[in-house]
Amino acid sequence: PDFTLHWNGITIHFKGIDEEQFRHLRELLDRGVSLEELEELAKELIK
């Protein structure tokens, strides 16, 4: 499924991740993950 997340004025689209992965990403963003960390995470998910 696809998810869209609005965070700090940025709209991020996640394609092909499951709800569990999306929930994990939201928790990280709510905790204050940096954009660099988010990019690293995205690379991991894409593999």
Rank of each mutant, 00 (worst) to 15 (best):
G9D: 06
A42K: 03
T11Y: 07
F14Y: 03
L28A: 15
G16R: 03
G16H: 07
L35W: 10
L5R: 00
K43S: 08
T11K: 08
L5W: 05
R31D: 09
E44F: 02
H13P: 02
T4L: 09
A42E: 03
D2V: 15
I46S: 07
G32Y: 06
K47V: 15
G32H: 05
L29Y: 11
I10V: 13
F14Q: 00
L5V: 08
N8C: 04
H24C: 06
D18N: 15
L28M: 13
E19P: 08
F22D: 01
G32R: 01
F14P: 00
P1S: 13
H13T: 14
I12Y: 07
L41C: 01
H13Y: 10
F14K: 00
L45P: 03
V33K: 05
E20R: 10
D18M: 06
E44K: 01
F22E: 04
L29P: 00
W7E: 04
E40N: 06
I10Q: 13
T4W: 10
G32Q: 04
R26I: 14
F3A: 02
T4V: 13
E40S: 06
R23C: 02
E37I: 07
L45R: 00
H13M: 10
F3D: 01
L25Y: 02
L38V: 15
L38A: 03
G9T: 02
S34R: 04
G9F: 03
Q21C: 03
G16T: 03
I17L: 12
Q21F: 13
H24W: 11
N8S: 05
T4N: 06
L29W: 09
A42P: 00
E20M: 09
G9E: 05
R26A: 11
I17Y: 03
E44R: 01
H24N: 10
E37D: 08
G32P: 02
E40L: 07
N8K: 08
L5E: 01
R26D: 01
N8G: 07
P1T: 12
L25E: 00
E39K: 11
R26F: 07
N8E: 11
I46H: 07
G16M: 05
F22V: 08
W7Y: 14
R23K: 14
L25T: 00
E44S: 03
E39F: 11
K47C: 15
F22T: 03
K43P: 03
H13I: 14
V33P: 06
R23W: 14
K43G: 07
V33R: 02
E27D: 13
D18I: 04
T11Q: 09
E20S: 08
D2M: 14
E19I: 09
E36S: 11
A42C: 06
I17Q: 02
D18G: 08
L25G: 00
H24A: 14
T11G: 02
K15V: 15
G16P: 04
L25D: 00
I10R: 06
